[in-house]
């Protein structure tokens, strides 16, 4: 079992405090995109990202997962927290330091998921801004 305590700890924290959860859907969100974050699972694994856009900047973000493992949850959650208030370039620039700072430790596997989530969100913003 490839358990990473820091990710699991963060993951459990998400479910101990429902009021702060970013899981869910934003109806009528300008950014709405579905994709896959887990390298091994391919198209069986899905995440949905939702974001409100105002003046090309994200405000509220939320996510939903299907067939999830903790890395995917945590990556999506941290991305939704870090991307709030940012424009497309600033989202693209979100790096490992920011991710691990919020996570509370190092997780290379988790960061791989985060990078995929970040690319997905940027794609969603591009689609929303171009439409």
């Amino acid at each position: 079992m490839a358990e990473e305590p820091v990710t699991i700890r963060y993951f459990k924290g998400l479910f101990s405090n429902p009021a702060e959860s970013l899981m869910g859907k934003i109806d009528g969100a300008e950014v709405e995109i579905k994709g896959e974050l887990c390298p091994r699972k391919g198209n069986k694994d899905q995440v949905f990202l939702y974001g409100r856009l105002k003046d090309s900047r994200l405000s509220l973000l939320k996510f939903m997962c299907a067939l999830c493992d903790p890395h995917m949850f945590v990556a999506a959650d941290i991305l939704c927290r870090l991307a709030a208030g940012k424009d497309r370039q600033e989202v693209s620039d979100l790096g490992q330091d920011s991710y691990e700072k919020l996570l509370g430790g190092s997780s290379p596997e988790g960061f791989e998921h985060f990078k995929r989530a970040r690319e997905l969100l940027v794609l969603g913003m591009m689609e929303a801004l171009d439409s």
Binding site: A2, E4, I8, F11, P39, R40, D69, P70, H71, F73
Partner: peptide, 12 residues
């Protein structure tokens, strides 16, 4: 459960 395994590298 919100997840059915600890990691993507673990079988479901």
């Amino acid at each position: 459960k919100p997840a059915t395994r600890f990691s993507d590298s673990e079988p479901d």
